[in-house]
Write a protein that binds this DNA or RNA. Structure first.
Length: 635
DNA sequence: TAAACCATGACGGGAGTT
DNA sequence: AACTCCCGTCATGGTTTA
């Protein structure tokens, strides 16, 4: 195999030096003076006690209202007593996690419950259709609903409800087998009184409904109103997971409401794509990608934003940093934002940091002032990154940046085909040939390594582009294909390091990190290159090869902290987290990028959105982050 | 058997035009 | 507004090769 495309002999700087020395040098980055802002936030501890006059049934109702089954709630109360609601909640979360892990069936049931169907109907539908085809189950459920004149309803999103939206989907999901028929005769958007009545019937208090109607204006739809109320509740009830007495149970917990919406979102995306797109664009919650995609700013561009206001509930500790592909299906980022305390995502294209594009969104609660980049700056054009290619680069190939580094690489045979296509001509092949070659080059990130000869990037070249030490992914019996795949799934280190750089002065004594979906350790490498000591890293990563890579890096860089690796994210339940938190005194940072498989545009087969098989692990990130926050606040 | 190879489009944003 | 065209996208599953 040709290796002559190697950029290793780049003369502008040396990627070949010993890793440790090199990394140590990076750590000594010169920096502008940093005025440390106080990143601490004022956090009241949650009042967790149940009120004295609260009978057992009220407590049960409360948790049932959050979406847990009555059986589980009873069990949790029996095991933990009535006194400590936190313990009960923890137990419930644990049950849910383990039941999700053990039974695909319950996941399926939950999925449809989340859409607002009753458990009874869902079980019946699954029994009739089997577990295999979710679409037929959905059809059946919709049929049931139509029969009962009780289809699911979506409260919090205004984007799937408008005047031309089919009214049959407007219903109250509280009790599907409700005996009264008010829904049929009530036109919720007709006048103020009807809407008020409708909202109270939905379980909102009269006060909430009135305030919402006042704030949203006389022409607001039910969906807008519920959206407003939901937002208000989220802001208010964020920390208080416990009853506000004048609210109906199912409205208490914003996460519950959000989860119900999540299921419906899937249905919505599938059936109402066109309509949604139109409506989403008018929706305040629609996330739009910035152009240029520089987030709050990048070191190489003039526009910088140094101030932002985080939603109160988003403020740490711990700090969190979540990453995923920017070009996810419509609605995914607003959903993720909703789950992550309504923090606005920061979209950044790594082409501003290195020679390859990498459009990613980051949701985090880090300060954004006084960021600084890793030094030295990595090469930012193809020619700088691979000087040897300059000699062979045709004038008709205008690329200066590579496209996104993906998980697959072109075959060596494609090189041959392109060679053959070009050989017949001189310096200026016909336009159609140029287009063919350029298209292939762009699709596969090919670079010129000889006359008429292109080649895909080698793993070590991708390592360099992504900011990893050379040979980072080598070893552990990892093939070229596997290395490319692991790298393709990774962070761009310089980009992430720029965002994490604010931690340097906050944690001079080192940092304790919970790293979910660690992959090949992009976050760890970034922190290390920033010179942030790693006191302890708890790393969750499914792939054994990747775990070996991180472990090997950990040893080779003479880390003095503790590295714990956990293969399965489900293993990280309340118990395990409590152990780890008490052992390390809590986590300072929860970092991770959950799988993008079902979000990425390259996926022909299962681009199913957030509810997809792998991408739904996003909810585990949220689950774990929620648990960490809860536990550390009650310490 | 492990690694390499290859066929497989849809979706969404941006820019321009009508 | 609505239309066109252009372009890029952390991939999967089956088949062939070494």
């Amino acid at each position: 195999m040709d290796r002559n495309s190697s950029g290793g002999d780049a003369d502008n700087f040396d990627w070949d030096t010993e890793d440790e020395l090199e990394i140590d040098n990076y750590a000594i980055s010169s920096r502008s003076g940093v005025s440390l802002t106080n990143g601490e936030s004022v956090l009241g501890t949650t009042e967790a006690g149940s009120s004295a006059d609260s009978p057992n049934s009220k407590l049960i109702d409360h948790f049932v209202g959050m979406g847990f089954s009555e059986e589980l709630v009873a069990k949790a109360i029996e095991e933990n007593g009535e006194e400590n609601s936190n313990l009960i909640l923890e137990a419930l979360l644990q049950y849910s996690a383990s039941s999700l892990a053990s039974s695909s069936n319950s996941k399926l049931i939950d999925h449809f419950l989340g859409m607002g169907f009753s458990e009874e109907m869902v079980i019946k539908a699954i029994k009739e259709n089997g577990e295999g085809n979710t679409d037929t189950i959905l059809e059946t459920l919709l049929t049931y609903s139509a029969l009962e004149k009780s289809a699911p309803v979506q409260h919090a999103d205004s984007d799937n409800y408008s005047s031309d939206y089919d009214g049959s989907f407007l219903d109250d999901f509280t009790d599907i087998d409700s005996s009264d028929d008010t829904e049929e005769t009530l036109n919720p958007d007709s006048d103020e009184e009807s809407r008020l009545l409708y909202l109270t019937k939905m379980g909102y208090s009269e006060a909430e409904a009135s305030v919402a109607m006042e704030r949203c204006g006389p022409d607001s739809s039910i969906a807008e109103l519920t959206d407003f109320i939901c937002a208000a509740q989220m802001a208010k009830a964020a920390d208080a997971l416990f009853p506000v007495e004048d609210r109906k149970p199912f409205c208490n917990d914003p996460n519950y409401k959000k989860r119900r919406n999540a299921g419906f979102d899937l249905w919505k995306r599938k059936k109402q794509m066109k309509l949604d797109k139109k409506l989403l664009n008018e929706d305040d919650h629609a996330v739009h990608l910035p152009n240029p995609m520089i987030g709050f700013g990048v070191p190489t561009e003039p526009d910088q934003i140094t101030q932002r206001t985080l939603p109160e509930d988003a403020i740490g500790p711990p700090y969190f940093y979540y990453e995923n592909v920017a070009l996810a299906p419509v609605g995914v980022w607003s959903e993720m934002s909703r789950y992550l305390y309504d923090v606005t995502p920061e979209f950044v294209d790594s082409k501003y940091f290195c020679a390859a594009a990498r459009k990613r969104g980051y949701i985090h609660n880090l300060p954004i002032e006084n960021r600084y980049p890793l030094l030295p700056f990595p090469p930012r054009t193809i020619h700088e990154a691979f000087p040897l290619t300059k000699k062979w680069w045709p004038s008709w190939d205008p690329r200066t940046k590579l496209n996104c580094l993906q998980t697959c690489t072109a075959s060596a045979k494609l090189t041959e085909r392109i060679l053959k296509a070009l050989e017949a001509y001189g310096d200026e092949p016909p336009l159609n040939v140029q287009k063919y070659v350029l298209d292939e080059c762009r699709k596969w990130n090919l670079v010129w390594v000889g006359k008429n000869k292109v080649a895909p990037l080698e793993p070590d070249e991708v390592e360099m582009l992504l900011g990893f030490p050379r040979n980072h992914t080598r070893g552990g019996g990892s093939s070229r294909t596997e290395r490319i795949k692991s790298l393709g799934n990774s962070f761009q280190v310089d980009t992430v390091a720029y965002h994490l750089s604010v931690l340097k002065d906050m944690f001079p004594g080192g940092i304790t990190v919970l790293s979910l979906f660690s992959g090949i350790g992009g976050a760890e490498v970034a922190l290390h290159r920033l010179g942030v000591p790693l006191k302890a890293v708890v790393s969750v990563e499914k792939s054994e090869v990747n775990r070996n890579i991180v472990r090997s890096w950990w040893e080779q860089t003479n880390q003095r902290g503790t590295l714990i690796d956990i293969p399965d994210v489900q293993e990280l339940n309340g118990d395990r987290l409590e152990q780890l938190i008490s052992r390390f005194g809590g986590f300072d940072l929860v970092v991770g990028g959950s799988p993008c498989n079902n979000l990425a545009g390259s996926n022909r087969h299962h681009r199913d959105g957030l509810e997809g098989k792998e991408s739904s692990l996003f909810y585990d990130y949220c689950r774990i982050l929620d648990l960490v926050r809860l536990m550390q606040r009650n310490q």
